[in-house]
């Protein structure tokens, strides 16, 4: 039998130790034993890794925000251009209307065709 496991039943010293009857019969123990320095280094590494993950993710979000801000800026610029064009269009249309060249004015039918009417 290998030295690194033992049956618990064999550890009983009293006939009253029947509580262990349904427990695992085998206990494994590692051949590698970590000391306090190794433990500390491991924990520090885990903390650093977690921090790194947090930083990369939060930076990623921030990067998206910067991209969103750029897109928003672009939207504002495009809207400004659209508004300026709409105003220019309205001014040109109004100027044309002033010259009686707008759509309604040009499609008007002269009612003088009623000249045949006699009272």
């Amino acid at each position: 039998m290998p030295a690194y496991y033992a049956t618990r039943r064999m550890t009983g010293t009293s006939s009253s130790n029947t509580w262990a009857r349904n427990r695992n019969d085998v206990r494994h123990s590692s051949k590698i034993i970590l000391g306090p320095v190794s433990h500390t280094i491991t924990i520090v590494l885990i903390v650093l890794l977690t921090g790194l993950i947090f930083l990369t993710q939060s930076t990623k979000v921030t990067n998206y925000d910067v991209e969103i801000a750029k897109v928003d800026d672009e939207i504002v610029n495009l809207e400004a251009q659209r508004d300026a064009l709409a105003v220019e269009n309205a001014k040109i249309t109004a100027a044309a209307a002033d010259e009686d060249k707008n759509q309604v004015a040009t499609t008007m039918v002269d009612a003088n065709s009623a000249d045949f009417v006699k009272e």
């Binding site: 504002v76 809207e79 400004a80 508004d83 709409a86 105003v87 309205a90 209307a97 759509q103 309604v104």
Partner: peptide, 15 residues
């Protein structure tokens, strides 16, 4: 109004 159903802007906003 610009006729029966059409409209034309007379006050607009400029950004």
């Amino acid at each position: 109004m610009d006729g029966q159903n059409a409209t034309t802007p007379v006050i607009m906003n400029e950004r």
